[in-house]
């Protein structure tokens, strides 16, 4: 369920720069808080997310912990690590990218009583769910706009708090569940509730490439991939490794990147001009700009970085006026041109 080893290589995706950048920004700084990818069918939304797994650097976890706890000096409260005498050897593992299928039950998502243990040994033990598996990584929900409401509420709650708290069947379990929520869907099939929309840090709209020659390239690459996956992956390996290095380097660089007051102020002015609600937009704008600068290998965060990430960060935060047909992209463009003149 985690890492899609034989997935289509991320590096081989034709175009779709905004999606790719948004996912990479989330990989560099998970605190941007989730990525929403909206677009038509057959535009490679899932391909990008599934391809991401191979790009991610490794992370350190406590060996054998099914909750993916990070080694930390303060005692972890997860059911595995809180047992006295649990060995705390740290190992490197791949960052998980976990798929949450539309039909998944609540049990599978949050975890439930381990029936095997209970029936065979009369022992009450918790069997971790997908939230535990996604800890420290990505949780991907395709067609998130069709997910049952109560599951959406649950996801939001956990994503916001970073903890999964289970109180059921006589079990009382809490464990870390910090993950980047990635959702994709086709808005024609139903909108996302505004409460949910706002929780995503970044929002990208994708469409099929308009240029015929890009489309041909997509088909050719996909065809080559399907005919010989190993050879195709090998051909793109160098590029994959290069991207992975870029992400790893950006992660280490992130802490050193200071954001000048002028940039902070520009971000505030941009949000004000667009009338976005609350401070979240501003905060994400700065974080995304910093991650973008880190990915570019820059020494400082500049207005340019702000400009680059503004559509992705703000597109879904604009107040909607259904009688105004101006697309959100255009409104942001205008505001950027006005507030941050080149």
């Amino acid at each position: 369920m985690t890492d899609f080893n034989d997935a289509y290589p991320f590096a081989a995706i034709v175009g779709q720069d905004e999606v790719k950048t948004a996912l990479m920004i989330a990989a560099v700084d998970p605190s941007v808080g989730g990525v929403l990818v909206f677009g038509d069918r057959g535009t490679g939304k899932s391909t990008a997310v599934r391809g991401l797994a191979a790009l991610l650097p490794e992370r350190k976890v406590i060996a054998g912990c099914p909750y993916g706890c990070e080694p930390s000096p303060s005692a972890s409260s997860c059911p595995h690590c809180s047992l006295p005498g649990t060995p705390t050897k740290a190992i490197n593992v791949r960052i998980p990218v976990v798929d949450l299928p539309l039909g998944a039950t609540e049990d599978r998502l949050v975890g439930a009583l381990d029936l095997e243990r209970a029936l065979a040994h009369g022992e009450k033990r918790f069997e971790p769910g997908l939230l535990a598996r996604a800890n420290g990584g990505f949780l991907y929900v395709d067609e998130i706009n069709l997910l049952e409401d109560h599951l959406v509420d649950l996801l939001l709650d956990v994503a916001a708090s970073g903890r999964n708290v289970v109180e059921r069947e006589g079990l009382s379990v809490r464990h870390a569940a910090k993950f980047v929520l990635v959702g994709s869907g086709n808005p024609e099939e139903g909108e996302l509730r505004p409460q949910l929309l706002d929780r995503f840090g970044l929002c990208v709209e994708v469409s099929t490439p308009r240029e015929i020659k890009d489309r041909i390239e997509v088909i050719k690459r996909r065809d080559a991939f399907e005919r010989d996956r190993d050879a195709f992956a090998a051909a793109w390996d160098k590029e994959t490794v290069r991207l992975r290095r870029r992400i790893t380097a950006a992660r280490t660089r992130l802490a050193e990147l200071a954001v000048a007051d002028a940039v902070l102020e520009a971000a505030a002015r941009l949000c004000l001009a667009l009338g976005t609600d609350g401070l979240r937009g501003e905060l994400v704008l700065i974080r995304a700009a910093r991650a973008s600068a880190a990915l570019a290998g820059a020494k400082t965060v500049g207005i340019d970085d702000l400009r680059r990430v503004a559509p992705t960060v703000l597109r879904h935060r604009l107040r909607r006026n259904p009688l105004d047909d101006t697309g959100s992209g255009v409104r942001i463009e205008r505001a950027v041109a006005e507030v941050l003149p080149a």
């Binding site: 038509d40 057959g42 535009t43 490679g44 099929t208 015929i212 088909i219 996909r222 065809d223 399907e226």
Partner: peptide
């Protein structure tokens, strides 16, 4: 596919 107004590239594949 473009002439038929089909957007999905899955159909072309």
């Amino acid at each position: 596919a473009a002439g038929f107004g089909i957007d999905s590239l899955r159909a072309v594949l």
